[in-house]
Amino acid sequence: MRQIFFDTETTGLRAEAGDRIIEVGCVEMVNRQLTGNNLHLYINPERPSDEEAVRIHGLTDEFLADKPKFAEIAEQLLGFLAGAELVIHNAGFDVGFMNAELRRLGKPPLTELVGGVRDTLLMARDMFPGKANSLDALCRRLEVDNSSRTLHGALLDAELLAEVYIRLTRGQDALLIDDSSAQSGQSGGEIRIEAVDFSRFELPVLRCDEAELQAHQAVLADIDKASGGKRIWQEDSAPA
């Protein structure tokens, strides 16, 4: 699966009032591996930025004056995003701004041009109800180093979001069984499995030693922390 961690910076907060995108950051991940194939663009918004917005991202009108306009980078950006699932924190904001820019060019909405959109803010609210779930809050909770984030920046924020997402979802993939060997025996869309008479075998019962038990408990603690305390098994079910 190809995923793009996506973030924007803007001249203000209201796309419907004419605020524009000034920076785009895209971080590519394929099959849960960051590829290093990222895209970072500054954009001339053709209008001034709000003072409060400049305090947040530090991108002045003077800095952006010689940067390309959105119409000049649209095909490059859309080509990079094509077919991928976008992973965005508070997706409604960034998608709303992208749709406004695409409407100006007579193009369809973003969701029709990519493989899908996943909102990590909604994921975090489900996992940590009642808690702060900003990107900074998630970095602190999931032990992602965001010490370099003195200002908001689209590429930096996309990189941080990628680390946050990996930690938010690591329990999902850690328990999956690799079925590649079973698939190799697949024929005509079916998997053929030879019946085995297990009564022919005497299976030994191997007891774990103290070191193995402690290692097991450490793994359970890591999964418990990653799931926000939502694991469904009980401590007394651990092997004796």
Rank of each mutant, 00 (worst) to 15 (best):
I43M: 04
E16I: 05
R2M: 04
A238P: 01
R231Q: 11
T150G: 08
K67V: 04
I166Q: 15
L102H: 12
I193R: 14
N99R: 08
V54S: 05
G185M: 04
L138N: 06
G106C: 10
I88S: 12
G185A: 09
F93G: 12
A240R: 10
G171W: 08
E212K: 09
K230D: 02
L168D: 07
R200E: 12
F128Q: 00
T11F: 04
A215M: 05
D50A: 15
L78K: 08
I177W: 03
D173H: 09
E28G: 04
L213Y: 02
L206K: 12
M1V: 13
E16A: 14
A53D: 01
R231C: 07
R231L: 15
L102T: 09
V219E: 12
S148C: 07
R32V: 10
N31H: 10
D7V: 01
S237D: 10
V219Q: 10
S147P: 00
I223T: 05
L122W: 03
V219I: 12
V87G: 03
G188M: 11
V144S: 03
E143T: 08
N37T: 09
F70Q: 09
T120A: 08
T35I: 06
P48N: 04
F128Y: 06
P129C: 02
N99D: 15
M127A: 14
E112A: 14
N31A: 15
E212N: 07
G153L: 02
R231H: 06
G188Q: 05
L64K: 08
C139R: 06
R104Y: 06
P109I: 05
N44I: 01
A154L: 03
D209L: 02
T8Q: 05
L156K: 00
L110N: 11
D136W: 00
D66H: 09
I21V: 15
E72S: 13
T169N: 10
V114K: 05
E202G: 12
T169R: 13
P68A: 10
A174N: 07
N146I: 02
G116I: 05
G92N: 11
C208D: 06
G96Y: 07
F198V: 15
G116F: 03
D136C: 05
R2S: 11
D19H: 10
D178K: 09
R140H: 06
A15L: 02
A100N: 11
V87D: 01
E52H: 12
L122P: 00
A238F: 07
L59E: 03
E75N: 14
A74G: 07
M1D: 07
D61F: 01
A154R: 00
D119C: 15
G228V: 04
T11D: 05
E51R: 15
F63P: 01
N90S: 11
A65W: 01
R149P: 00
P129A: 11
G188A: 10
P48D: 02
P109Q: 09
G116P: 07
